[in-house]
Amino acid sequence: MRTLAIALLAAVALAACRGKPPPSDAITDGNPQRGLDAIQRHGCGACHRIDGVPGAYGTVGPTLQQIGERAYIAGKLPNSPENLQQWIRFPQRVVPGNAMPDLDVNESDARDIAAYLYHQ
């Protein structure tokens, strides 16, 4: 068990050094498959290009490809699972007047969407 824990910590540290996040479900406590469902339910693909999401070819908002490798979310928040979830839930509170509407995304869906986005 101790060896497994050390190996997991080493993998997380190595990923952090490369600028890549650890496994999405580990950092968000979400489920990428449920995130895909939530992305489709909330219509995120109408505005964003999102790999793996059927019909998600929107060009109104930025592409969400490789979001885990970006330094900032919405040009304002340091990229972290908590900040991504905050942005998904409350974009108008984070950057008032921006083009992304509040879509009434609940906490669970935000966790799952973040897991999906970091997973791709």
Results as ranks from 00 to 15, higher is better:
Gln65Arg: 13
Leu4Tyr: 11
Tyr116Gln: 08
Leu77Val: 06
Ile39Phe: 02
Ala7Glu: 12
Ile39Leu: 14
Ala10Ile: 13
Val12Thr: 11
Leu103Pro: 08
Pro22Gln: 12
Gln85Glu: 15
Pro101Gly: 00
Gly97Phe: 06
Leu64Cys: 03
Pro22Arg: 01
Trp87Leu: 12
Gly19Glu: 10
Gln33Leu: 13
Gly55Glu: 10
Leu77Cys: 08
Pro91Gly: 08
Asp109Phe: 02
Asn83Ser: 05
Cys44His: 08
Arg2Thr: 02
Thr63Gln: 06
Ala99Phe: 05
Ile113Cys: 04
Ala10Asn: 04
Ser80Cys: 02
Ile88Glu: 11
Thr28His: 00
Lys76Pro: 01
Asn98Met: 03
Ser80Leu: 02
Gln85Leu: 07
Phe90Ile: 00
Arg2Ser: 11
Pro22Lys: 03
Val95Gln: 08
Ala56Thr: 02
Phe90Gln: 14
Val94His: 09
Arg89Ala: 09
Arg70His: 05
Gly58Asn: 04
Gly55Asp: 11
Leu4His: 10
Thr63Asn: 09
Gln33Thr: 14
Val53Lys: 09
Pro21Trp: 15
Asp25Tyr: 08
Ile50Cys: 02
Val60Ser: 03
Arg41Ser: 04
Arg18Asp: 12
Gly35Cys: 10
Gly55Ile: 01
Ala46Ile: 03
Pro101Lys: 08
Ile73Asp: 09
Tyr57Ser: 07
Thr3Met: 03
Pro78Phe: 08
Asn106Pro: 14
Gly55Arg: 09
Gln92Lys: 11
Leu84Met: 15
Arg49Phe: 13
Arg70Gln: 12
Ala10His: 00
Tyr116Leu: 13
His42Lys: 14
Leu8Asn: 05
Val94Ile: 15
Val53Gly: 04
Ala38Met: 02
Thr63His: 01
Gln86Thr: 14
Pro23Leu: 08
Ala7Phe: 06
Ala115Lys: 05
Ala56Asn: 03
Ala15Met: 15
Trp87Glu: 05
Leu117Cys: 04
Cys44Thr: 02
Asp37Gly: 01
Pro62Glu: 12
Asn31Trp: 08
Gly58Ser: 03
Pro32Arg: 13
Leu14Thr: 15
Ile6Val: 12
Glu107Ser: 14
Pro101Arg: 08
His48Tyr: 07
Pro96Ala: 07
Arg2His: 13
Gln92Trp: 09
Asn79Gln: 07
Cys17Glu: 14
Ile50Phe: 04
Val12Ser: 10
Cys17Ser: 15
Gly45Phe: 06
Gly61Val: 00
Asp102Val: 11
Lys76Ile: 09
Ala15Gln: 15
Gly30Ile: 01
Leu117Pro: 11
Thr59Pro: 00
Glu69Trp: 02
Leu117Ile: 15
Val105His: 00
Pro96Asp: 01
Ala46Thr: 03
Pro22Tyr: 01
Gly61Arg: 07
Ala46His: 00
Gly35Asp: 07
Ala110Val: 10
Gln33Trp: 11
